[in-house]
Design a protein around this nucleic acid. Structure first.
Lengths: 107, 107
DNA sequence: CAGTATCCAAATAGATACTG
DNA sequence: CAGTATCTATTTGGATACTG
């Protein structure tokens, strides 16, 4: 009974990638990073300060993103990917391709 | 302003794969399917009837899973993957591998 | 520029009981 | 066997205003 052994990694992965904005934030950093807070915000349509801030914290805690304070006065911060974050590239690209192929909007 | 063009497919993909149980259900069908309702339930630890039922509906509507009534008296149903669902295999496998490599439980 | 503080709404998940 | 019906709890996401 119960789940077979290899299932927890999938749970851990979807606990991160299942958040509404996380894949898009990672993809944004992948293709356009490193970026500052407001640069991220302007590239991700519809996200609020609070949600972006929380999401970046979350990704940082998961070890996928690093936050560097590069200057103060005014404060300047750079968000970029860790190696773990960069290793998601083929997966996100694959997902993107799969989606284009199989997920049409009119379903 | 706004997100760059290629972003909607990612949204559509995560609208499905971002649900708590969906990737695990797909993976279960991928590795052990086709399966009946209770067979699914016994393989997915902790899921309730209601949540499983809703999730399968959702996956069906997204075109990733098919439901076949193979017998009645007693009713017997088989859930299996569509080609679109099967095409997720490399992605889910990749995610699994990535997770094992980078996501340790103690973070 | 880069956030935090509040307060609120919506979406998801779960427990329990029951049905064709 | 394969679900549905309720009702509740929890988790996320969002709007608005304010701060170092």
């Amino acid at each position: 009974m119960g789940v077979h052994a290899g299932t927890e990694p999938l749970h851990r992965a979807t606990a991160i990638l299942g958040k509404k904005w996380h894949p898009l934030l990672l993809y944004t950093l992948l293709t356009e990073g490193p970026l500052g807070f407001n640069d991220m915000k302007s590239r991700v349509d519809g996200i609020s300060d609070k949600v972006l801030s929380e999401a970046l914290d979350d990704l940082q805690e998961a070890g996928l993103v690093v936050r560097d304070v590069v200057d103060d006065k005014p404060v300047r911060v750079n968000y970029s990917l860790t190696p773990a974050g960069r290793d998601l590239e083929p997966i996100i690209e694959g997902l993107l391709e799969w989606s284009r192929e199989h997920l049409t909007e009119s379903r």
